[in-house]
């Protein structure tokens, strides 16, 4: 479904991604784990079109999308949940959801989608008239995910959904991710919380300073001695 080949991304003179290649099959959860500064978010931003690669290609459903603008990529079905939740704090929950469906123009469809989101995240229904900024961290993360789902994504890019949340909430969020995946949305998950990420992912890639140093089935990666010592606190 998604095929990234030999991706090189620069921030000015800084070489952030040094020849990354990976792929994601339809229906999979693939996770990218790595420490701060490994290039995980850069990779997601490149896939979603916010950043553009200097070399290499991003292929989606057989089509090269390396140079497309973000709004085009959203329309094609790749939607990102940005790092740090980043909901619109000064908009109500309802308006946040409607922003998520920005690329959808059919009113009825927006409404149906919104109802579906309220069913999936009941807490958002009770908060629907509240400003996004007044929600708790966990609720904000749910809102961010609901907002992304409003755009009918085929592929969901999640950037550290566990960031800054208490462990019980992290588990809840990961349950939701699994649920979303089971209903047919492929997920590309970037995480620092390697343990949680590996426990729900099908396959994993380990990123270090712009290189992929390890890849394989999640269960295999989880038992890799290097990963255990570096990311799982073994």
């Amino acid at each position: 479904m998604l095929k990234v080949t030999d991706l090189n991304v620069y921030y000015g003179a800084i070489h952030a991604l040094k020849g990354i290649s990976f792929d994601l099959q339809e229906g999979e959860i693939v996770t990218l784990i790595g420490a701060n500064g490994a290039g995980k978010s850069t990779l997601l931003n490149t896939v979603s079109g916010i950043l553009h690669a200097k070399e290499g290609t991003v292929e989606y459903l057989g089509e090269n999308i390396s140079n497309e603008a973000p709004q085009v990529i959203v329309q094609k079905g790749i939607v990102q949940v940005p790092e740090g939740r980043k909901i619109f704090a000064k908009m109500t929950v309802m308006e946040n959801l409607e922003m998520g469906a920005y690329t959808v123009t059919d009113r009825q469809q927006i409404q149906d989608k919104r109802e579906a989101m309220f069913d999936r995240f009941p807490v958002l229904r009770t908060r629907s008239k509240q400003l996004g900024g007044t929600l708790s961290g966990g609720e904000q993360q749910m809102l961010a995910m609901a907002r992304a789902l409003m755009a009918n994504p085929k592929l969901l890019l999640l950037d550290e959904p566990s960031m800054g949340l208490a462990p019980v909430l992290v588990e809840q969020i990961f349950d939701i991710i699994q649920d979303i995946n089971q209903q047919g949305t492929s997920v590309l998950l970037v995480e620092q919380n390697a343990h949680m990420a590996l426990s729900i992912a099908d396959r994993a890639y380990v990123l270090e300073t712009g290189h992929i140093v390890l890849e394989g089935d999640a269960s295999v990666v989880m038992n890799d001695p290097m990963v255990i010592s570096a990311y799982l606190g073994g």
């Binding site: 908060r127 007044t134 708790s136 961290g137 566990s162 208490a166 909430l169 992290v170 990311y231 606190g233």
Partner: peptide
Amino acid sequence: GSSDLKEDIDPDLEGRGN
């Protein structure tokens, strides 16, 4: 919106403790 909703943001960012 009530102000007591913020409690479950973990101040120590425990989610990234690894």
